[in-house]
Simulated scan of single mutants.
Amino acid sequence: MGTWGYKPFDNDTAADFAGDLDAAPQSERIEMLRAALASVADDVSTHVIGGKAEIAIAAAALTVRKMEGGEEFQSEVCGPSSEIPEIPKDLAPLALDAVSRLLVKDNDLWEDWSQREDGDKWFSMLQRLNLVLSKESSDSQESLW
């Protein structure tokens, strides 16, 4: 089926990632999120392929799940059903880097969604996710001072 909606878990790749999180020991789930985010945030030299981007968006959605405004990005149906440990504070800036990178045009998802009738909904969702992450990242920086 591929993609059936514009939300973070409304595609086969993200739904499979949620299943992988459920299957993994709880002690490995944060590192799985970190790896998914880093695969986009840290790889600035190349075009981001769609599957990697979809997983990073799902990981970013899980990163914000307990933040103000983060409930919008959760899925009762296709997200992970098992517990995700508390998200470390250093994951929000990494998620912000990944989502910010996807807001530029050098990725498959941008190209795919720009051709779709509801592409503006996907782009708007990504902007809102970026906004939640931006607020959390700035709050985290302020707490250091």
Rank of each mutant, 00 (worst) to 15 (best):
S39G: 13
A18F: 08
S81N: 13
I57C: 00
M67L: 15
E86Q: 14
V44H: 05
S138T: 14
V64M: 03
D16K: 13
S114C: 08
A59T: 03
D42F: 04
A92N: 07
Q141S: 12
Q74L: 15
V77H: 14
N11G: 11
V44G: 15
P80E: 05
L103Q: 04
A61K: 03
L21S: 05
W4V: 10
D118Q: 08
A18H: 05
E71Q: 12
L126G: 00
M125K: 00
K105L: 09
S81D: 11
L109V: 07
A14D: 02
P85M: 05
L33T: 02
W4I: 12
N107I: 03
G70C: 07
A41H: 01
Q26G: 00
Q26E: 12
G2Y: 07
P80L: 02
V132G: 01
V44P: 05
A95I: 08
S75L: 04
R116P: 00
A53V: 01
P93Y: 02
E117T: 12
A60E: 02
K121T: 03
K135S: 09
V44Y: 09
P8D: 06
S124H: 08
P80C: 10
D90H: 09
E54D: 11
A36N: 01
V44W: 06
W110G: 02
D118L: 07
E54C: 06
G70P: 03
K52V: 11
R29C: 11
R116E: 13
I84L: 15
I84F: 11
F17Y: 15
T3Q: 08
L21N: 03
A98N: 05
R116N: 06
V40E: 05
Q115T: 11
L144P: 00
L96V: 04
L126E: 01
E31A: 13
S82I: 07
N130H: 15
R101P: 06
Q26M: 09
E31M: 10
V104Y: 15
A18R: 03
K135A: 01
A15F: 05
E76S: 14
S140N: 15
E83Q: 12
M67W: 07
S138P: 00
A14N: 03
N11W: 02
D16W: 04
C78R: 08
E142P: 01
K52L: 06
A58G: 10
T13K: 09
R116I: 06
A61Y: 00
D12T: 15
G50R: 15
T13R: 15
I30W: 07
L103K: 03
